[in-house]
Simulated assay, not measured.
Amino acid sequence: MSAYPLVADLAGDSVLVVGGGAVAARRISRLLEAGARVVLVSPVAVSDLVRLAQDGRIAWIRRRYVEGDEHGFGYVFALTDDPEVNDRIAGRRGSAPTNVATRTSRRRISVPAVRQMDGVTLAVSCQPPDPRRSRMIADLCLSTLSGRLSGA
């Protein structure tokens, strides 16, 4: 797959996240930092997400995904632990660009490993998507550049 890298301004955009586990918690944290308005659909959620919902920082719909939930959102993150559900979400006709946590050919967007320091954002993505390798390379680059960035 050939990928086109981009950085998206999500400030004020509505983003749907399906699945309430640790991967969803990491993605939602970054989405909130980017100013996105997050709606979580999941019957259960890890404690970090429960707190975000209690604090009013995300909207939480406490149920399983229902076909059509993705309509009206600018981006969708299918982050359940069920590859069939994730694939079904990603395959919906006319749905928004979708990131899928499980391996599938239907993934339309991938989330790179991101590191930030001194006003610099470093994003690393491997093809095919390999989150572990991307994180390792991002950490290596940042550690190599850390002294140089502060003196630039």
Results as ranks from 00 to 15, higher is better:
Ser2Phe: 05
Leu6Arg: 10
Ala8Glu: 06
Ala8Pro: 07
Ala8Gly: 00
Ala8Gln: 08
Ala11Gln: 02
Gly12Ile: 02
Asp13Pro: 00
Ser14Phe: 09
Ser14Arg: 08
Leu16Asp: 02
Val17Gln: 05
Val17Trp: 04
Val18Arg: 04
Val18Tyr: 07
Val18Cys: 09
Ala22Tyr: 09
Ala25Gln: 04
Ala25Ile: 04
Ala25Thr: 03
Arg27Asn: 09
Arg27Tyr: 07
Ile28Pro: 02
Ile28Glu: 09
Leu32Lys: 01
Leu32Ser: 10
Glu33Arg: 13
Ala34Glu: 09
Ala36Ser: 05
Arg37Asp: 06
Arg37Phe: 00
Val41Asp: 04
Pro43Asp: 14
Val44Gln: 15
Val44Lys: 10
Ala45Asp: 11
Ser47Lys: 03
Ser47Glu: 15
Ser47Leu: 11
Asp48Met: 08
Leu49Pro: 01
Leu49Lys: 02
Val50His: 04
Arg51Gln: 13
Asp55Glu: 15
Ile58Thr: 12
Ala59Ile: 03
Trp60Leu: 01
Arg62Gln: 14
Arg64Met: 05
Arg64Gly: 02
Tyr65His: 10
Val66Leu: 13
Glu67Phe: 07
Glu67Arg: 14
Gly68Trp: 07
Gly68Lys: 04
Glu70Met: 04
His71Gln: 04
His71Lys: 03
Gly72Leu: 08
Phe73His: 09
Gly74Glu: 02
Phe77Ile: 01
Leu79Ser: 14
Thr80Arg: 02
Glu84Arg: 09
Glu84Ala: 07
Arg88His: 01
Ile89Gln: 10
Ala90Gln: 10
Gly91Thr: 00
Arg92Lys: 15
Gly94Pro: 02
Gly94Glu: 12
Ser95Lys: 06
Ala96His: 13
Ala96Glu: 07
Ala96Leu: 13
Thr98Asp: 02
Asn99Gln: 04
Ala101Phe: 12
Arg107Leu: 10
Arg108Ala: 05
Ile109Thr: 05
Ser110Ile: 12
Ser110Phe: 08
Pro112Arg: 03
Pro112Thr: 05
Ala113Met: 12
Ala113Ile: 03
Ala113Arg: 04
Val114Asp: 01
Arg115His: 00
Met117Ile: 00
Asp118Asn: 10
Gly119Val: 01
Val120Asp: 06
Val120Tyr: 12
Thr121Leu: 06
Thr121His: 00
Cys126Arg: 09
Cys126Tyr: 09
Pro131Trp: 07
Pro131Ile: 06
Arg132Lys: 11
Ile137Ser: 07
Ala138Val: 06
Ala138Gln: 05
Leu140Asp: 09
Leu140Tyr: 10
Leu142Arg: 01
Ser143Ala: 14
Leu145Asp: 09
Leu145Ile: 12
Ser146Arg: 15
Ser146Met: 11
Gly147Gln: 08
Leu149Asp: 07
Leu149His: 10
Ser150Gln: 14
Gly151Glu: 15
Ala152Gly: 00
